[in-house]
Amino acid sequence: MKKILRRSSFYLGLLLFTMFAVFPVIWMVITAFKQDGDLYNVANNPFIYNLPPTLKHITFLFTHSSFPTFLRNSAFIGVVVVIITLLLAVPAAYSLSRLVGHWGERSGIAVFLVYLIPPTLLFIPLYQIVSFLRATNTVWALILVYPTITVPFCTWLLLGFFKSMPRELEESALIDGCSRWQSFLRIALPLAAPGIATCIVFAFALSISDYIYAAVFVSSTAARTVSAGVPTELIRGDIYFWQSLMAAAAIVSIPLAVAYGLLFDRLVKGFQS
């Protein structure tokens, strides 16, 4: 009896937390398929379809808005940022964990602190740098600045990864005839593959998520990302295209959530080191 009580209170707690997390998302998904007549009637129960659901607003999103452009820009920026991030963060993390002595191994928190410097502190001088480089209103402005967010984060993540890898494996490679560089390429790098995969997901997600830089550095629709483009394009003055807004948000967020969710345990481990 006590056991049942315990179990049910456990699931009740879990359910409450989950409801808090997903209620806004459920509301978002419900809205995306509603007809105008249904949505804008205060008397209606907002949680059910009083009129049959419609795909009209999703079609609108893809055919009559710049959403496809935003998606393309976000994807392009994401891919390039991921590549830059890996090229910078993987060698840096390996160097800190193995090659530059004790202070390197302990630099984890310091590296993460760089990630925590908020864009709001930096966006004004960065805006000047970007305009100095004549990169405003192009995707390259964002490609230039996003690694300031992703490199510290991924270096920190990989630092923990390399530190947890047994040193003897690389030392064994050194004795077996590799130079330090070769042992990094042939032993450490393949073994860090799960960590690198995690970095790819996060670098991509972080570059999609940014709003401030995207809003400040880019004002032309052609170069906008999803994060900055959706709120500006689909909110015109007082007119809100709610269903399309919600559909756009859902289309971007749900795949990201799945990727994050599958990496949940790895993140927990990342904070243990």
Binding site: V25, M28, S209, I235, V252, A257, G261
Partner: peptide, 30 residues
Amino acid sequence: WLWQILLILPWAMPVSLAAVDWLWLLDSEF
């Protein structure tokens, strides 16, 4: 794992889209 995906959802969402979602959730009329 399924619960974890649901629970992590808010963090995975781009902040701006999350804000728009809440803007609508707490809409003055609807």
